[in-house]
Design a binder for these strands. Structure first.
Length: 423
RNA sequence: GGAGAAAUGGCAGAGUGGUCGAAUGCACUGGUCUUGAAAACCAGCGAGGGUCACACCUCCGGGGGUUCGAAUCCCUCUUUCUCCGCCA
């Protein structure tokens, strides 16, 4: 959520930059500024009314003390009208605040100037590519076939226990998954990220803080009896660690990593390209997250991209990095780099990481601030990224590392798995 | 799940209807003193709105109510602690 003061100060610039998202925000922005003006006018009126009744109350107090009950009663009557006015103004003000907020919730983050324009994922800009795409032997299989062949992932069993999109990993498949999680966490903590284990269910306030609520309510599993949501990503609980916090400048930067399962309803996304591990309702992910000084956040974003690159390089998976275009950019993000690993047997790229700078967009909702040099409270920048999403990494390994004799485990993982071949 | 107690500023902790945004102590920041440091002393020290800046308004776990006036009284929710029960 953007700050109104910021909208007011940079109106034209903001409207221009939002065009990258292919939206004409002029009406929204103008209305927000207008609503805010009206809000402030109402607030002033209400404050004045309250101020008056406060001073009358004080007078009454003094009169009572000195025993001048008659005079006090006269003043009491005077306040009745004032009270009514106050109540009315309060209601009016609440309505205005609500209208303003509802509007602000609908304005997406402002894309960074280097975000390419475009509508769909086809307009994303490839900024980096590494790793050779292997030429597979005849009879090479997609990962869901390999999963069955080597009996390491059981999709049908998941159907039986829960439903589609909840696979069961077994044997070396389960071990490989656990190895990946540990390896990712080790890489992240070595790079200075502090490991956290966070709750997998969050309350409404947390969902709101990171922007999942109210807009993406339908995408999260909701536990109605307790009004809690299953997390769609560790970003939600991990970022909310810092909700309603005022840091000191020396606290920054803060680097957090955590492993969690992620739950997504994926309502309306059935169809092609959802086979196997490509799209699931429950999957595992290791997340990295940073809270940064505004001056340093883009430097930090680059650092996170480099970090994820390092992991993929060690895994020896062919991947590319995309700078998302305005049309594909997430609602809360100002700049996002997607990592995609090449799925050789499917002959397509699979997104395995998304690294974003949210600037103050989340921090504003979270009330996450730091005390700056001048002693003033200033919003932090938040960033996060996956390092990495497990299922598609697994798919990439299975497909790219398959040989006629079995799946060859990337060398870096062997100390974690304890085996070097799935056969 | 049952019974009881509690929730106040970064922390500790006063305050039970009226000049209380809140005593006091600690912590923190600046200054005096000192060769330097400590100690001592002086000053400052929560957040949000609002303003050019003041003024002013709001906030004592959340929400609602009583009252001219609420940190203080009432209702409700949440959380924490103690005891009992159940349990990985």
């Amino acid at each position: 959520m953007l700050q109104v003061a910021f909208l007011r100060a940079h109106k034209e610039d903001i409207i221009n930059r939002l065009q990258k998202r292919n939206i004409d925000a002029s009406e929204m922005v103008n209305n927000a500024i207008l609503f805010d003006e009206e809000r402030r006018a109402l607030q002033t009126k209400l404050d004045n009314a309250k101020s008056e009744s406060n001073s009358i109350s004080k007078e009454i107090g003094i009169l009572f003390k000195s025993g001048e009950v008659q005079k006090a009663n006269v003043l009491k009557e005077k306040t009745t009208q004032l009270k009514e006015d106050t109540k009315e103004l309060e209601q009016e003000l609440n309505g205005k605040v609500e209208a303003l907020n509802n509007l602000l919730y609908t304005i997406p983050n402002i894309p960074n100037t280097i975000v390419p324009s475009g509508n769909t994922d086809e307009d994303n800009e490839e900024v980096y590519r590494e790793g050779d795409i292997p030429t597979l032997f005849d009879g090479a299989l997609p990962h869901w076939e390999l999963a069955k062949k080597y009996d390491i992932i059981d999709f049908e069993l998941g159907n039986k226990i829960t439903g589609a999109g909840f696979p069961v990993y077994k044997g070396k498949g389960a071990k490989l998954q656990r190895a990946l999680i540990t390896y990712f966490l080790d890489k992240n903590t070595e790079a200075g990220y502090t490991e956290y284990q966070v709750p997998h269910l969050v309350n409404e306030a947390s969902g709101f803080g990171t922007g999942q609520l109210p807009d993406k309510e339908g995408q999260m599993y909701h536990v109605a009896a307790d009004n809690l949501y299953l997390i769609p990503t560790a970003e939600v609980p991990a970022t909310n660690i810092f909700r309603n916090t005022i840091l000191t400048e020396s606290d920054l930067p803060i680097s957090v990593t955590g492993y969690t399962p992620c739950f997504r309803r994926e309502a309306g996304s059935y169809g092609a390209h959802v086979r196997g591990l490509n799209r699931l309702h429950q999957f595992d992910k290791v997340e990295i997250l940073r809270v940064e000084h505004p001056n340093n956040s883009y430097h930090a974003l680059d650092g996170m991209v480099e970090h994820v690159k390092g992991i993929l390089k060690e895994l020896k998976l062919p991947y590319r990095i995309l700078r998302l275009c305005g049309g594909d950019l997430g609602f809360t993000s100002a700049l996002t780099y997607d990592f995609e690993v090449f799925s050789t047997a499917q002959d397509r790229w699979l997104e395995i990481s998304s690294v974003s700078n949210f600037e103050t967009f989340q921090a504003n909702r979270l009330k996450l601030r730091f005390k700056n040099n001048e002693g003033k409270n200033e919003l932090c920048h938040t960033l996060n990224g996956s390092s990495l999403a497990l299922p598609r990494v697994l798919a990439g390994i299975l497909e790219n590392c398959q040989t006629k004799n079995g799946i060859k485990i990337p060398e870096i993982l062997v100390p974690y798995t304890g085996f070097d071949l799935i056969s």
